[in-house]
Design a protein around this nucleic acid. Structure first.
Length: 293
DNA sequence: AGTTGTCAAGCTAGT
DNA sequence: ACTAGCTTGACAACT
């Protein structure tokens, strides 16, 4: 079981997701931001290894505007050596890596231009992971997409569009249950048709389910991952008290987390802690797990 | 130096 | 009709 946190480290004092406005796009700006981001990514990964945090989500902003038509720069080639070095570090330390393109990526959009842009964005994520030299256990997670007032048709559209994707994307893409539209059960239907692995988000499951327990849903999601896909990825969070339903907590609630661990005892998976204080909660969990052994 | 409006992309639900 | 929220953060223009 590997423990991790997404994109940002609040301790080190650098960011691996620094970007700029589209209006200030230039080759120089892009190069300097990517240089900064890559150097910070190294720092974060080194910190993580020292602390025993072996799961990390790389920010989609690592290469700003990579899939935008304005970007004509061959960043893949230009930073080829850096990617290789960072990738070697990841492999040497057996780190698990994920990426999570944002809400604009919609495979099942009705507008074919949106689908096209989405595929370009997925291609960027997969090119990056390929450049790092990572195998298919490094994954790119997205949600199913929009409902457009007709869920069945929208799910069918996802399936159709997924089947058309090239292998570069297919080998890394996984779907994650969301908190409002597509439950784990919905994702499993799509997985049955396509073979796409289902990432289990415990907090989203808490917000949207059909009465299944965490364990039941996690086991079902786990069954969609083949050995070569790596172990099941789980996103974990809990409700921020007093806030709108679905708001992630600032700090981890260890009582709830222990409860989750107890519920899922004996099952192997990697956990991404989607908690706002980032590595702070992740370190708390590492400490707690060490005390259990 | 510190503050604050705004940022490529889209959907949904709530006002 | 409009906007907050999404993994929210951070850029950049303004005091």
């Amino acid at each position: 079981m590997k423990i991790g946190y997404p994109c940002i480290n609040r301790n080190i004092g650098c960011t691996a997701n620094s970007t700029f406005r589209l209006a200030s796009y230039s080759r120089e700006n892009l190069i300097s931001k990517v240089e900064n981001n890559l150097s910070c990514l190294r720092n974060i990964l080194e910190f993580n290894v020292k602390q025993g945090l072996l799961f990390f989500r790389i920010s989609s902003d690592l290469v700003p505007f990579a899939s935008h038509p304005i970007c004509r720069f061959d960043w893949l080639n230009h930073f080829k050596t850096d990617f290789k070095e960072i990738g070697a570090f990841i492999q040497k330390n057996d780190l698990r890596i994920s990426m999570h393109p944002d809400q604009f990526v919609l495979i099942n959009a009705k507008d074919s231009d949106i689908v096209k842009r989405s595929i370009n964005e997925l291609e960027y994520h997969c090119d990056l992971l390929d450049a790092l030299g990572l195998d298919k256990t490094a994954r790119v997670q997205i949600h199913v997409g929009g409902v457009y007032g007709e869920k069945d048709k929208s799910m069918q559209r996802f399936i159709r569009e997924y089947r058309k994707l090239n292998m570069k994307i297919k080998k890394r893409l996984v779907i994650e249950n969301d908190d409002k539209l597509y439950s784990v059960k919905d994702c499993l239907v799509i997985s049955n048709e396509t073979g796409i692995p289902v990432l289990f988000d415990s907090f989203h499951h808490q917000c949207l389910n059909h009465g299944e327990t965490n364990r039941e849903s996690l086991v079902m999601a786990k069954s969609t991952w083949k050995n070569s896909d790596g172990s099941l990825m789980v996103d974990y969070s809990s409700q921020k008290s007093g806030a709108r339903k679905g708001t992630h907590t600032e700090h981890i609630n260890m009582r709830l987390f222990r409860q989750f661990l107890a519920e899922t005892e004996g099952l192997n998976f990697d956990i991404m802690l989607e908690i706002k204080d980032k590595e702070k909660s992740a370190l708390k969990v590492i400490k707690a797990l060490n005390n259990l052994i």
